[in-house]
Design a protein around this nucleic acid. Structure first.
Lengths: 250, 250
DNA sequence: CAGTGGTCTAGACCACGCG
DNA sequence: GCGTGGTCTAGACCACTGT
């Protein structure tokens, strides 16, 4: 039942997790590994592919296979949080116009001007999360200093969002997170330095005002092997009234 | 740049999504498909593997490759909800003893007796979610009718949990969801009828009482291609006080 | 039984990284 | 240029399915 590439992968996994192969170390070339395990190169590559989706190794064309830093799983609170727990965040911003999907999510007319912030957070040179934050100018204009991106310390770009809370005429009312598991796009995989076949957690956060206006839309992508998100829901104790919301097909 | 198996996959994907290949229809044998596209069988299988992780086809050894029902994406509210929107749920229960992990999560002594409920929800013969619900006898004993599994209509087994809300001496205080993206275990993949390499959304819900006692622990696994979860967070308007919780390494 | 997918082989050729 | 991984080939053999 256990296939040969499984067997090879098991042995290599043991070597890596036991520390016999140090972090950052290069594995032997695939041809030599194939010879060592008496399998063909495609079979050996199947084994490495397994380890790669597990986040144990990293491949570089022309250089070799390298043992990866064991994933440090970070727990992100679902609610706003002060950053600064060793996370470095790189923020860049640009003014673009909303098209198609984006306009729909921000509930703006097509081609409405919006500001885009891209936040890539690192921990020890290892990318931890990629966030795209979109704020319509109609919202931004109302405030003063949001346009100059503050250096965000949170992967959610919370600080930027929080400034909306305080500065905008329409106060922030609530925030809806749509959570899915999927594969990363090519660009996401590249930014996060993960395999195209490593699952990611995708969180689409829509922040709305009291009057239903969409203040911001955040797409946060977290590598599945390195992140988890915690949502805490206090339960109303006199909660015999059932919520009337139902699962909806989309 | 685009590899041959990519090209083949693109064409087959077009045929499937355009409806030229009907749902449930069997594809031509792999050898014939390989001949049609002038590629070798391994290459063709790479293409099919892609479509499989995308949830477009389903493979059965000895029978063939079949076009899958297009994934109906369901949005599950993160909070309790009445079931019944076409979801059939199969519930089974058993009395087991907590071991290792489980005992830790339920904060019970090892080998404490607990009741396990397994809920598999379907929609039109297509599995939509798999939940494992664990309730310590220490909690169950306090109530009367929880032990006989009510037929749950929610993939979260909410009805069972809700009965705790009303019947237990210690009222339900809050519920913490830990959300990750990962690959399914072999058993999960089999129950949900998905490929081992299809990402799933894993939600670990811990329900605690006011005094910190763990009332229930739920592990909900949802196929990434068919489910998403919505969490709504109302934002306190006078929220200049930052929450003091920080992201924690685990 | 015949037909199907599951796995593997022993090469080949190309593209990339680095000296 | 050389060594590396990336992709592909044209088969082979086995395990499983349904008749």
């Amino acid at each position: 039942m256990t296939s040969r590439h499984q067997h090879v992968a098991d042995d290599l996994r043991r070597l890596i997790t036991s520390g016999a192969l140090a972090v950052g170390e290069r594995l032997a070339p695939e041809t030599r590994l194939a010879a060592r395990y008496h399998v063909s190169t495609p079979t050996l590559r199947d084994a490495l592919e397994l380890l790669r989706t597990e986040g144990l190794i990293e491949k570089f064309q022309g250089r070799g296979n390298f043992v990866r830093r064991p994933p440090q799983r970070l727990t992100y609170p679902g609610v706003a949080v002060d950053g600064d727990d060793g996370l470095q965040v790189i923020v860049s911003s640009a003014d673009i116009t909303a098209t198609g999907d984006l306009a729909a999510r921000l509930r703006t007319p097509p081609d409405a001007p919006i500001t885009q912030y891209v936040c890539l957070s690192h921990r020890d040179d290892s990318p931890q999360g990629l966030a795209h934050l979109y704020i319509p100018h109609a919202v931004t204009r109302a405030t003063s200093d949001v346009r100059n991106p503050p250096v965000s310390a949170s992967p959610w770009a919370d600080d930027i969002v929080r400034s909306l809370t305080t500065a905008t005429g329409e106060p922030v009312a609530n925030s809806t997170d749509l959570v899915t598991a999927r594969f990363p796009t090519g660009a996401e995989a590249q930014s996060l330095r993960i395999a195209t076949r490593t699952p990611v957690l995708s969180i689409e956060r829509t922040i709305t005002a009291d009057d239903g206006q969409v203040l911001a839309y955040v797409l946060l992508v977290l590598p599945g092997d390195r992140a988890e998100v915690a949502f805490v829901t206090p339960i109303d104790k006199k909660t015999d009234k059932k919520t009337d919301k139902k699962a909806e097909t989309r």
